[in-house]
C-alpha cells in the first residue's frame, strides 16, 4: 500500500465513522432536536471525509473540483434543511412545552 492509498483509506474510515455516529444518534437520541444534531455530523463530516478520501486518489484536479462542488452543495442544502425543519417543528410546538423553545 502506498502512502496515498493509506491516507485515502484512513479518510474513508473517518467518513464511515461519522456516518455511523449520525445513524446511531438518529436512532437513539430522545427528541428531534438532538437527532438533527447527530444527523448533521453525517452530512458535514461524514460526507466531507469520504469526499476527501476520494479526492486524495483522484487522477485530475477537475475531478477534485467536482467532488468539492458536490460536497458544498450537500453542505449548503443540509444546513438550510436543518434550519427549515427545526423552524417548522418549533413554530408548531405548543408554548407550554416544558423544554421550551430551545
Amino acid at each position: 500500500m502506498t502512502l496515498q492509498e493509506l491516507a485515502a483509506a484512513a479518510l474513508l474510515f473517518a467518513g464511515a465513522f461519522f456516518f455511523l455516529a449520525g445513524a446511531i444518534g438518529l436512532l437513539r437520541f430522545p427528541d428531534p432536536c438532538t437527532r438533527i444534531h447527530a444527523l448533521t455530523k453525517a452530512d458535514n463530516l461524514g460526507l466531507g471525509f469520504v469526499v476527501l478520501g476520494l479526492a486524495v486518489e483522484a487522477p485530475s484536479v477537475v475531478l477534485v473540483a467536482k467532488l468539492g462542488v458536490i460536497w458544498v452543495l450537500v453542505l449548503v442544502s443540509s444546513s438550510l434543511s436543518s434550519q427549515l425543519i427545526m423552524g417548522r417543528a418549533q413554530a408548531r410546538a405548543p408554548r407550554t412545552d416544558p423544554r421550551g423553545p430551545t
Partner: peptide
Amino acid sequence: TSEPLASFLNLLVPA
C-alpha cells in the same frame, strides 16, 4: 424570505 433561505436560493439558481 428568511436570510439563510435567500442566500441558499442565490446559490441554487446559478448552480
